[in-house]
């Protein structure tokens, strides 16, 4: 099959969706298909958003058997065989502020156009998948359309392993306001003694790192929080997880299940996440594969304590997490089968 993977393109921004698109093209080729990636510009202003929509909806695709659309406005490309694997919609047009745009006559016109085009595109697509239950649920809530969940496999195939837990809980991932490592640090003020928190990852910027360091000092937990503020290798990461009691990951309304949670699960470690963390709840079932806490320091401290002070229970949850992760069959083989059938 000749497949065109369509993604959007915000200049100089490269995140999970861009990695996903690249990997999808690679996996399609590995499976014997011809695959190309097209990226359609998406600007910031309402006028640019509108231009992006129009450009996508007027695009003439030739010499292609199927278009696989990932993100707005790329999935608006007119093509008779369009399969949408929805990474996420243009949330400014759906969510309440601050994510969504405030009510404004100028913005309302653009919102109306986005919603109209989205609904038609979703309804007329050959098949419609969402990358996570959260994205599918949002789609159903906002557009009344049901999408099959086809979760994204992890970026890399790793040699996951597990070791006897040492005395720390690990907080992995890019250090940013959105990932709320600061909340985990504040929780350590209320945690019982006997274990530590290891925060490891590159900070988004100097201000974020400074904020984290200041929080450690202010909370008086420098002796219980180890900060590794740099990009860590895959090997370092797997080693940290393998030796940890469990993992804590506290994003806000994450679209996907969270690779951090997946890596912990595959390493037979439980995860702690927050009730408002969105897609992480796919892998973190409270009391079975990990703990789900209110996004407050005291509540989080209680969850930390529960894992740290009840190691047998934590170990059992970790094993359950691995079983669940395997059951989800997060393999590229399945994704490619679905998208090309």
């Amino acid at each position: 099959m000749k497949l065109l993977v369509a993604n959007n393109a915000a200049p100089f921004v490269r995140g999970g969706a861009e990695f996903l698109a690249d990997r999808l093209v690679l996996e399609l080729r590995r499976a014997g298909h011809e695959a190309e990636l097209v990226r359609l510009p998406l600007g910031d202003t309402p006028e640019q958003i509108l231009d992006g929509m129009i450009a996508a909806s007027l695009l003439d695709v030739v010499n292609v058997d199927r278009v696989i659309g990932l993100k707005f406005p790329a999935y608006l490309i007119p093509f008779p065989d369009l399969v949408i694997w929805l990474v996420h919609q243009f949330r400014q047009a759906y969510d309440t502020p601050p994510v969504g745009w405030p009510a404004d006559p100028t913005l309302d016109r653009v919102v109306s156009a986005v919603r109209t085009a989205d609904k038609r595109a979703f309804v007329s697509a050959t098949r419609l998948y969402a990358i996570s239950p959260v994205v599918a649920e949002r789609l159903h809530r906002s557009n009344g359309i049901t999408a099959e969940v086809l979760m994204t496999p992890p970026h890399a195939d790793q040699a996951y392993r597990t070791h006897e837990a040492e005395g720390f809980i690990v907080a992995l991932g890019r250090i940013s306001d959105g990932k709320r490592q600061v909340l985990a640090i504040q929780a350590m003020r209320h945690a019982r003694p006997g274990y530590r928190l290891v925060v490891a990852g590159a900070a988004d910027n100097a201000a974020t790192l400074e904020k984290i360091e200041r929080e450690i000092a202010t909370a008086g937990v420098a002796d219980r929080v180890e900060l590794i503020p740099r990009f860590i290798t895959e090997e370092e990461k797997l080693d940290l997880i393998a030796r940890s009691i469990g993992s804590v990951y506290l994003p806000i309304d994450e679209d996907s299940y969270g690779y951090v949670c997946y890596e912990a699960a595959m390493s037979s470690k439980p995860s702690i996440t927050a009730t408002d963390s969105g897609g992480t709840l796919t892998l973190v079932e409270h009391g079975r594969t990990g703990l789900v806490s209110a996004p407050e320091p005291e509540a989080l401290a209680a969850a930390f304590d529960e894992l740290a002070l009840h190691r047998d229970r934590a170990r059992a949850m970790g094993q359950n997490a691995r079983t669940l992760a395997l059951e989800l069959d997060l393999s590229w083989t399945r994704v490619i089968e679905e998208l090309t059938r």
Binding site: D51, M53, T116
Partner: peptide, 19 residues
Amino acid sequence: IGARLRRLGLNREPAVVEA
């Protein structure tokens, strides 16, 4: 252009038509 915009219902969206 009209046919293409109609496919997604954009032919009746004032913002799109104006643009």
